[in-house]
Amino acid sequence: PDFTLHWNGITIHFKGIDEEQFRHLRELLDRGVSLEELEELAKELIK
């Protein structure tokens, strides 16, 4: 499924991740993950 997340004025689209992965990403963003960390995470998910 696809998810869209609005965070700090940025709209991020996640394609092909499951709800569990999306929930994990939201928790990280709510905790204050940096954009660099988010990019690293995205690379991991894409593999």
Rank of each mutant, 00 (worst) to 15 (best):
P1E: 10
P1W: 09
P1M: 15
P1C: 08
D2S: 12
F3G: 01
F3E: 00
F3I: 03
F3M: 03
F3D: 00
F3A: 01
T4W: 03
T4N: 04
L5H: 01
L5K: 00
L5C: 03
L5R: 00
L5P: 00
H6I: 06
H6C: 03
H6M: 08
W7A: 10
W7M: 09
W7N: 02
W7K: 13
N8T: 01
N8I: 02
G9N: 04
G9I: 00
I10C: 07
I10T: 08
T11P: 02
T11W: 01
I12M: 04
I12T: 01
H13Y: 06
H13W: 04
H13R: 08
F14W: 02
F14D: 01
F14R: 00
K15W: 15
K15C: 06
K15H: 15
K15A: 15
G16Y: 08
G16K: 03
G16P: 08
I17P: 02
I17T: 04
D18G: 07
D18E: 06
D18V: 04
D18P: 03
E19W: 05
E19C: 05
E19R: 03
E20F: 11
E20V: 11
E20D: 14
E20Q: 13
E20T: 11
Q21C: 04
Q21H: 07
Q21P: 01
F22M: 09
F22A: 03
F22Q: 04
F22V: 06
F22P: 00
R23Q: 15
R23H: 15
R23M: 14
R23P: 02
R23C: 14
H24W: 13
H24T: 14
H24P: 02
H24E: 09
L25D: 00
L25H: 00
R26L: 15
R26C: 12
R26V: 15
E27L: 10
E27M: 10
E27Q: 11
E27S: 12
E27F: 04
L28W: 10
L28T: 05
L28S: 07
L29G: 02
L29E: 00
L29Y: 06
D30H: 12
D30E: 15
D30K: 11
D30C: 06
D30N: 11
D30W: 07
D30Q: 11
G32K: 03
G32L: 11
G32S: 06
V33W: 12
V33H: 10
V33F: 12
S34G: 10
S34K: 08
L35G: 03
L35D: 02
L35Y: 09
L35A: 05
L35T: 04
L35N: 03
E36I: 12
E36G: 10
E36V: 12
E36N: 11
E36L: 12
E37W: 12
L38N: 00
E39S: 10
E39F: 15
E39I: 15
E39T: 14
E39A: 14
E40C: 06
E40N: 11
L41G: 01
L41V: 11
L41H: 07
A42V: 13
K43H: 10
E44C: 07
L45Y: 08
L45C: 03
L45S: 07
I46V: 12
I46C: 06
K47N: 11
K47G: 12
K47H: 08
K47D: 10
K47I: 11
K47S: 13
K47T: 12
K47M: 08
